[in-house]
Design a protein around this nucleic acid. Structure first.
Length: 197
DNA sequence: AAGGGCTCCAACCGCCAGCGA
DNA sequence: GTCGCTGGCGGTTGGAGCCCT
């Protein structure tokens, strides 16, 4: 995509690490006007940053109630299970972990968990592949649109998680099903909910 | 002590979907 | 219906700091 000319002389945006001063400006602006219309936030706050950059900084760093570092064993376990269930859908996984961001979980996965998984890597799940072949309707449709289109990663599920789980309950984080999932263990949970993977 | 390799994480990039004009 | 704008997402990268020899 070619850079757009906005009519004015090309404005060079700041890039790279945020300074404390920039953080302060952004936080101040959002406190007054709210976190919406990121392009407006970027221009009106006096930050020489693009809207995307402001949004990312706010969501991953400045937002209140952010938990940073020290991912507990419980959280790690949850990430592992959710990743098995959802694939690389970091935003969805992060939505189940209050105070955690998709970026943090993605980083944690890439630097810690993916290595762990590789170490204990079981043989390729033939059962899963067989099952997929038996009920290919959803997956094939999906694949025809683009083999590795985003979301599912290298793991395929033959149900629509968004249909099955109400991800709109952000207030309570909709954690009930997760708790149930963890308590029952994934196989029992999937059986109980009549799903197969 | 130094310097080369490795790890981790903040931030950028590109793509896509939703929405309004 | 289409076009442009915007926000959201996952993948990738760059660099600071740590570790090892």
């Amino acid at each position: 995509m070619a850079p757009k000319n906005d009519g004015s002389a090309k404005k060079v945006m700041n890039k790279g690490a945020w300074t404390a001063e920039e953080d302060r400006k952004l936080a101040e602006y959002i406190e007054i006007h709210g976190a919406k219309r990121w392009k407006t936030v970027a221009t009106k706050s006096g930050l020489n940053r693009c809207g995307k950059s402001c949004r990312l900084r706010w969501l991953n760093y400045l937002r209140p109630n952010i938990k940073r570092g020290n991912i507990s064993d419980e959280e790690e376990d949850l990430i592992l299970r959710l990743h098995k269930l959802l694939g690389n859908r970091w935003a969805l996984i992060a939505g189940r972990l209050p105070g955690r961001t998709d970026n943090e979980i993605k980083n944690y996965w890439n630097s810690h968990l993916s290595k762990k998984i590789n170490k204990v890597k079981p043989p390729q799940p033939e059962i899963v592949q067989e099952a997929a072949l038996q009920d290919t309707s959803n997956i094939n449709e999906f694949k025809e649109e683009g083999e590795d289109s985003k979301g599912i990663g290298n793991f395929e599920v033959n149900f629509d998680v968004n249909e099955l789980f109400d991800f709109s309950t952000e207030g309570s984080y909709g954690l009930e099903w997760v708790n149930e999932f963890l308590e029952l263990g994934e196989e029992s949970w999937l059986t109980e909910n009549k799903m197969s993977i």
